[in-house]
Design a protein around this nucleic acid. Structure first.
Lengths: 105, 105
DNA sequence: TAACTATATCAATACTTATTGATATAGTAA
DNA sequence: TTACTATATCAATAAGTATTGATATAGTTA
């Protein structure tokens, strides 16, 4: 009756990690950024201009995404190019799917 | 280069819906409740006692989940029994997977 | 009816976090 | 060097929301 997800240490840890991931991507601008980066790497100015955000706000959200490992950055001249970390996203997607899929059976 | 998800009306609407869903489930107690209800329908007192939450707080989170359609409730004597709406969850899972899957392709 | 149990609601507070404005840093070019 | 561009950081504020305490409501049982 009591599902494992709320009992043993590993399950609790997974739930915590999943919630952290969800908090990161449950912000509209951040999800848009991830969405935008799916089309290929972009510099910060491309991102904020395209999304209509303030430059510093964009930097802030990129930092949140980067700190969590969802994106990476590299300097290229004056610009900083951000790209998406597919593997990391897949990892958390998988964790999340433990909570969203496999109902019933 | 510019992904559809940030341009046309339908994509913007999908993103908004997805973010709303994410905000609902990105709260630890709510995700735990969903997790718990996967094991079968439960009354409120079972839920708050099992999760160690205050009764009113549990009611609050259940209301949030219910208002969004993720769970349903029915009265059974003194108790109110909550159950999970698998179809709704699947619907939003699908929406979400548009953002988390199919990278690179 | 009255007393009791289970749940919901309301107001206030606490907490987190998004946003803004100002400024700093780093790279580039003259 | 100075001037310029792109990005990051910091402090302050604003906005949203989780939590708590008190109370109300609904169903049950005596």
């Amino acid at each position: 009756m009591k599902p494992r997800c709320c009992i043993d240490k590993k399950s609790v840890a997974n739930l915590s990690q999943t919630v952290e991931f969800l908090k990161i991507i449950s912000e509209e601008n951040r999800l848009k950024i991830l969405c935008l980066l799916r089309g290929g790497e972009k510099c910060v100015c491309d991102i904020w201009q395209y999304l209509g955000l303030a430059q510093n706000l964009t930097s802030h959200h990129l930092k949140v995404l980067k700190d969590f490992g969802l994106v990476s950055s590299k300097q290229k001249g004056l610009k900083v190019i951000y790209s998406i970390n597919i593997k990391v996203i897949k990892k958390y997607s998988k964790l999340l799917n433990n909570y969203l899929n496999s109902y019933g059976e």
